[in-house]
Design a protein around this nucleic acid. Structure first.
Length: 367
RNA sequence: GGACAGGUGGGAGAGUGGUUAAAUCCAGCAGACUGUAAAUCUGCCGUCCAUCGGGCUACGGUGGUUCGAAUCCACCCCUGUCCA
């Protein structure tokens, strides 16, 4: 059996199955982000979720390879038996740019924790992820802000392709079922994105991710380049759109042919009192929820929604109790999981377009 | 009864002649958040009309000095601490 197969299709939207060493994942899937081996504020054993993200840059610094190996890998360390995708740290070269210097054969960087100096090659970035037992390993890539001069993006594309190839070579000694995905770059330059994508597709990566979007460009541009880039990718391999989060855009992105998405939105916004529901988003700090006895989303079966009211969680935010953030983050992740399940089912049932329309209509409604 | 100290916007608390509708913090009201440098950040926050903006009322009270007072003076009221 193949590691990835498309099982149903609705236009370009597709449902599929992705096999990893820690289970089969039905796609399209939303992956919650647990950068430092923790979904911020949420006990991951409360999540009914086939795959989560973690981050190699952070794990490399803390707790470090030795500790993770002592525990028998990342899964055992955090007691998580489903799949884990690790991001390489490419995004941190971008978001923590003051700590990084690009060198010819890798990146020099300082620890965000103690300022200590480190050097990482694209090979090491990949082998580290393999060693800690990541199910889906991401290539080290070079992500640029928007807007950037064309020459800079072109250079980032070259670096990204070079690093991807080096990572792939380093990965060949692992015959573990772990997968290495390549990441496309190219900013909002269609030809550079094509050049990057085609170059990467010359190699037998088992999956491809679209990176370098959601870095400040207007929505319409992002949508355009997402659609274009998704069209360039192989039909028989999983396509992962990195950092894709808002519910309406999840629908759009799946409609364009994406299989996997991740985002910090459910947890970050959850910590900041914003809850997602099928009738739109709500800010639980708002005074109108003070005496509201209903759950965040009456249609949600998550722990927060079956046990607690908006009024109670409003109070918890008001007095800065961390339980507020836990409950809201937990709910938001549950919402994303439910959302992608609905999307998957609609593709299987051939009702994607109607379901999307229905969702969009309700989303705009006020709570 | 006496001696000090003090009374500032919802609260705390700056300011001690003009640039002050009054710093700052808190509370209050909204908004943002996209491969997590984020339990963070932004805006509003006397009142009335309002788009820029403009009007009105404000620093315990009353009177006064001054071109101009939250700021100076007089008296009054109130609060705190200490002494009888």
């Amino acid at each position: 059996m193949k590691d990835f197969e498309v099982t149903a299709q609705c236009g370009k939207a597709r449902a599929g199955k992705l096999t990893t060493p820690h289970g089969v994942i039905e796609t399209p899937i939303f992956m919650p982000v647990g950068t430092q081996a923790s979904i911020k504020g949420v006990p991951h054993d409360m999540l009914n979720c086939p795959i989560i993200l973690s981050n190699a840059y952070y794990l490399y610094l803390k707790p470090g390879l030795k500790t993770l190996k002592n525990f028998g890998g990342l899964h055992r360390f955090m007691n998580w038996n489903n799949a884990i995708l690790t991001d390489s740290g490419g995004f941190q070269i971008f978001s923590l740019s003051s700590l990084f210097k690009i060198r010819k054969n890798g990146v020099e960087f300082r620890s965000k924790f103690d300022g200590s100096k480190h050097f990482l090659t694209p090979e090491e970035a990949v082998t580290f992820q393999f060693e800690i037992g990541s199910d889906i390993v991401m290539s080290l890539d070079r992500c640029m802000k928007y807007p950037s001069p064309r020459a800079d993006i072109a250079s980032a594309v070259r670096t990204t392709c070079d690093w991807a190839e080096k990572g792939l070579n380093a990965s060949k000694r692992y015959e573990t079922g772990q997968k290495l995905f390549a990441i496309t770059q190219g900013g909002t330059f269609s030809d550079l994105r094509r050049e990057c994508t085609e170059k990467l597709m010359e190699h037998p990566f088992p999956g491809f991710a679209i990176g370098g979007l959601g870095v400040g460009e207007p929505l319409a541009l992002r949508q355009q380049h997402l659609a274009e880039n998704l069209d360039m990718l192989p039909k028989d391999k999983p396509r992962y759109v990195m950092g894709m989060g808002p519910a309406p855009e999840i629908w759009d992105t799946v409609e364009m042919g994406a299989d996997m998405m991740d985002c910090v939105l459910p947890t970050r916004n959850g910590r900041n009192a914003q809850a997602f529901t099928f009738s739109g988003k709500m800010n639980l700090r708002n005074a109108k929820f003070k005496n509201d006895p209903s759950p965040i989303d009456p249609s949600c079966g998550c722990h927060a929604c079956t046990k607690y009211s908006r009024g109670y969680i409003h109070h918890l935010f008001n007095v800065r109790e961390m339980l507020a953030q836990t409950l809201t983050s937990l709910h938001n992740i549950s919402f994303m999981i439910n959302l992608t399940r609905i999307i998957r089912d609609s593709i299987k049932n051939g009702t994607f377009t109607e379901e999307k329309k229905k969702f969009m209509k309700n989303w705009k409604g006020e709570n």
